[in-house]
Amino acid sequence: MRILEPRSGSAVVGRFAVVVCLIALVNVGFMRAYGMSHLVTPLYYVLHAVFVGGPFVLFALFVIVFQIRLQRKLSFLSRKDGLTGLNNRRTFFEHTDSRRKECKDGVLLLVDADNFKRINDTYGHQTGDICLKRIAKTLRKNVRHDDIIGRVGGEEFAIFLRNTSLEQARAVGERLTKPIIFRPVNGSSVRDLRVTLSVGAAMNFADQPLDTLFARADQALYKAKADGRARLVVWTEQLPMH
C-alpha cells in the first residue's frame, strides 16, 4: 500500500493516469474478446475509463492516503508522548537498552521538575502543560541529535547521553539546572513563570543491567531533591538508599 501512496499532487495525477490507461486496455480486451471492438472508437475506451472508472480510482487513492496517514499517526502515538513529542517511557527504555549495547561509554540523566504540583495547583493544568513543553524544548536544545530523550513520568524526564564521559554529562546536567522561563496561558494576569530542574546522573557500564542504571540515577535524583533541588547529583556508592 505504501508503494501506491501518492506523496504529491503530481503523483496523484500520475497514478490516476496509469490506472485509467489500464482500465481502458481492459475494456479493449473485453470488446475484442466478444467481437464488438468494431462498434466503438478508441476515444470511447478513454472516455469510458475516465468517467466510469475514474471516480473509483480517485476513491481508492483517497482510501490509501487516509489509511497510511492513520497508521503513521497511530504508530507515532504508540511511541511518543502526546504532549511533548518526546519518546514515551516504553520507547525510551527500548532505545536506551539498544544504544547501551552499541557504545562503551554513556551517562543516564533523570530529570525532574521542581515543585511542579504547585504550578498545576496555582495556575492550572494548562499552564502545567506549557511548562512541560518548555522543559522538553530545553532538553532537546541541550543534547545531541543521537542522544535519547524521553518523558518517563508526569514531570520526570530521562536522557541517555551516548559516548559521553561523566565530566561531559556533568556539564550538560549543570546547564539543565538553570531556571527555565515560560509564559502561562493566554489571558492570564501572571507574566513569566520559572521552573527549575533537579538532575540525577549515573554512569553506564557494559555489564550493568538497565534496571540498575535507572535505580542509581533515581537514587542520585532523590539526593538532589533532598539537598534543596535545582542541582545535579552524580551517583556514587556512598549515596544512601531511599
Rank of each mutant, 00 (worst) to 15 (best):
R2C: 00
R2K: 05
P6S: 03
R7H: 13
R7C: 03
S8A: 00
G9I: 00
S10R: 02
A11M: 13
A11W: 05
V13H: 00
F16T: 10
F16Q: 13
F16W: 14
V18N: 02
V19I: 14
V20S: 12
C21F: 11
L22P: 01
I23H: 10
N27T: 05
N27I: 02
V28Q: 12
G29L: 14
M31E: 12
S37A: 15
S37F: 01
T41R: 07
P42R: 12
L43Q: 14
V46Y: 05
F51M: 13
G54P: 11
F56W: 13
A60D: 13
I64F: 03
V65Q: 10
F66W: 04
Q67S: 11
R69A: 02
R69L: 04
L74P: 01
S75L: 15
S75M: 13
S78P: 11
G82F: 02
R90F: 09
T91N: 06
F93I: 10
F93N: 14
E94V: 04
T96I: 00
R99T: 08
K101F: 02
K101I: 03
D105L: 09
D105E: 15
G106R: 01
L109V: 10
L110D: 04
D112Y: 04
F116S: 01
K117F: 01
N120W: 05
Y123R: 04
H125G: 01
H125W: 01
H125A: 02
H125M: 00
T127G: 06
G128A: 13
C131V: 08
I135R: 04
I135M: 09
K137C: 08
L139I: 10
L139V: 04
N142W: 03
V143G: 06
R144C: 01
R144E: 04
H145Y: 10
D147P: 07
D147F: 05
D147E: 05
I148D: 00
V152T: 13
G153L: 09
F157T: 07
A158F: 12
A158E: 09
L166W: 00
E167I: 06
R170Y: 10
L176H: 07
I180Y: 07
I180M: 02
F182N: 14
R183T: 09
N186Y: 08
G187N: 00
S188C: 07
S189W: 06
R191E: 12
R191L: 06
R191C: 03
D192C: 08
R194G: 00
V195I: 12
V195D: 03
V199S: 07
V199R: 10
V199M: 09
N204R: 01
F205Q: 15
A206W: 15
A206D: 14
A206N: 14
A206M: 15
D207M: 14
D207Y: 14
Q208P: 07
L210A: 07
L210D: 03
D211L: 02
D211G: 11
T212D: 15
L213H: 13
L213C: 09
L213K: 15
R216G: 05
D218M: 07
A220N: 07
L221D: 01
K225R: 10
D227E: 14
D227F: 09
G228A: 08
A230P: 10
R231C: 09
R231W: 04
R231P: 04
V233E: 14
V234N: 02
T236M: 01
E237R: 07
P240F: 09
M241Y: 02
M241L: 05
